[in-house]
Amino acid sequence: MTNSEGGRGQLPIFGTGPRDRPAGSTAGGTAEARGDAGQEGMLQLVLALADQMRELTATVADLQATQASRPSPGAGQAGAAGSGRREPEPRPWCWLRMSHTDKAERLSELADWVREVLMAWPAAQRAYTPCWSWHWDVVEDLSMLYLAWQTAYLWPGAGVREVADFLDRLLPSALVRASDRLKPCTHGHQPDGERRDDADLVDQAVNGLRRLPQLKGQGELV
């Protein structure tokens, strides 16, 4: 034996068994074993959590793919089958910018709707006299009502609220305006007469406003 008596209690750098451990090292070894077991359990927990995260990631990806494949709310039938773009809401008509040919076509379209749809309401038959198409302010109001009906009933982006708004607010208010506007025509068409021209009085007001800076500069205006 080459080790001296005093060196028997020294551990080698790499101990391989109980004979290499000094006396009283059993408790330390047990603690090390418990530590190794704890680390092993923690590793298993981390691996399990990693598996769950992979499953959640795959589930989220599936849900996103499913959501993307669905047509967006309000998308038109053509858009849902093709590009998926939202069909635009019907736009108002601007009669002043229409040609006479376009006006004739629009008025014919409006008259078809008045006959086939609007006159289903008895109140509309009482409100609109047969000469409604000869009063352009009434035509403007009716075209608004027609497009509001299109938006509520034919536009794919509409819902119950648009229908309720048409029935509860737009239609009743239009009937009230028509009843008041066409009252003189109850017993026959009454022409609206020539359009009033206020150009003279407007010119006086405009010229007066243009002179104000000059009057102020001359001290004539307090």
Rank of each mutant, 00 (worst) to 15 (best):
G82E: 05
V160P: 01
S4L: 04
A152M: 05
L147F: 12
G157Q: 06
D20L: 08
L221S: 07
R91Y: 07
Q64R: 14
V176W: 07
E109Q: 10
Q52N: 09
L170S: 08
K183I: 01
R91F: 07
G15Y: 15
Q67V: 13
R210K: 13
V139D: 04
G29Y: 06
G15C: 13
D198T: 04
G6D: 11
D102R: 13
Q44E: 13
L154D: 10
E220S: 03
M98W: 08
Q39T: 09
T57R: 11
A178V: 15
A152H: 03
D62W: 04
V138Y: 12
G76F: 01
G79E: 00
L45R: 15
E140G: 07
M119S: 05
A205M: 06
Q52R: 14
Q39D: 07
N207P: 00
E105G: 08
R54V: 14
Q10T: 13
G24A: 13
G79V: 02
A158L: 10
E220T: 00
K216W: 05
Q190F: 02
Q190A: 10
L43K: 10
M98Y: 14
A148D: 12
V46Q: 14
P18G: 09
A127Y: 08
Q77V: 06
E55T: 14
T151R: 14
E220C: 06
R86E: 00
G193T: 05
R210G: 00
P12E: 00
R195Q: 11
P122Y: 07
Q67F: 12
G15T: 14
F14M: 10
E5W: 01
R21T: 06
A61G: 04
Q44Y: 06
L11N: 06
E105N: 11
G84L: 06
L107I: 09
A33R: 15
G17H: 08
L43P: 00
Q218C: 01
R85W: 00
R211F: 00
A124C: 03
